[in-house]
């Protein structure tokens, strides 16, 4: 496996809070890497630095061997890194289909004032995308009328519409009812595997992590406490004590 994203020596502090205190991380082509850790550990900051939203005070990030630090978010997206949001960023007054079509258009050809957003080819692509996420029945619902699970999936679908090689997801299951969680993650893992997208996701639910992550990176106070195959990291006593907060007992039956 080759390295897709490589971060070296990232440092970022907000006042006295260290969001990144010398982060070194390689994301491998094709893997699902989970980032876990307590709130305020700098997990989202890592996503924000990688997508160009925040500029680290030191360090470097290379995507596919090319340095990307200092590029604005929209140029980094064009290089093939998309993201989804902890709070889904949908246009509430538009339908799910229109939201998806806007993302399709953003990738396929946005700057034409003459042709409709819902032109046949964009509509077809948007519908196919929504179908793969199981969202097609909701295509004509207004985005602000959806439940949180559907909003999250739509948000992720919009990121996938950009045909990224790397997708960064910020807490894809937070705010989703426990009963829907696994179904949602299963859906999105299936879509991402099919599309051959490498994924990094911040996650608090250890069941989700144990089931879907190839590797796990444990964040704590701006540093990576542990990094390795999911089974190994999640069983690490120190990780369990420091981060997961469970002393003993297996995570999965």
């Amino acid at each position: 496996m080759s390295v897709l994203l490589s971060a070296r020596g990232l440092r970022l502090a907000f006042g006295g809070v260290r969001a990144a205190d010398g982060i070194d991380l390689d994301v491998m082509q094709g893997e699902f890497l989970a980032i876990i850790g307590p709130n305020g550990a700098g997990k989202t900051s890592f996503i924000n630095m990688t997508t160009g939203y925040l500029r680290p005070q030191a360090g470097s990030i290379a995507f596919d061997g090319q340095p990307i630090l200092g590029l604005p978010p929209r140029k980094i997206v064009r290089r093939g890194i998309a993201r989804s949001f902890q709070l889904p960023q949908l246009s509430g007054e538009h339908t799910v289909l229109e939201n998806a079509a806007l993302a399709v258009a953003a990738h396929a050809g946005f700057w034409s004032p003459w042709r409709a957003l819902l032109r046949p080819e964009y509509r077809r692509d948007a519908e196919a995308l929504l179908d793969s996420f199981g969202l097609l029945p909701l295509a004509h619902a207004r985005a602000d009328a959806l439940n949180e699970g559907a909003r999250k999936l739509t948000d992720i679908a919009m990121a996938v519409a950009l045909k990224p090689r790397l997708l960064l997801m910020d807490e894809p299951t937070s705010g989703v009812a426990a009963s829907e969680k696994m179904a949602i993650v299963e859906t999105l893992v299936r879509v991402l595997r099919q599309a051959g997208v490498t994924a990094v996701f911040v996650e608090h639910d250890m069941d989700v992590v144990a089931r879907f992550a190839d590797r796990v990176a444990v964040w704590s106070q701006g540093q990576i406490l542990a990094l390795g195959p999911a089974a190994q990291v999640l069983e690490d006593p120190e990780v369990r004590r420091e981060v997961i907060g469970i002393e003993a007992g297996p995570l999965l039956p």
Binding site: T51, R78, A82, R83, Q89, L90, S91, H94, A106, A159
Partner: peptide
């Protein structure tokens, strides 16, 4: 209308 409500989203769509 995305500028009105979700401007950062546009930037993250390139």
């Amino acid at each position: 209308s995305a500028i009105k409500t979700r401007e950062t989203r546009l930037e993250f769509m390139g």
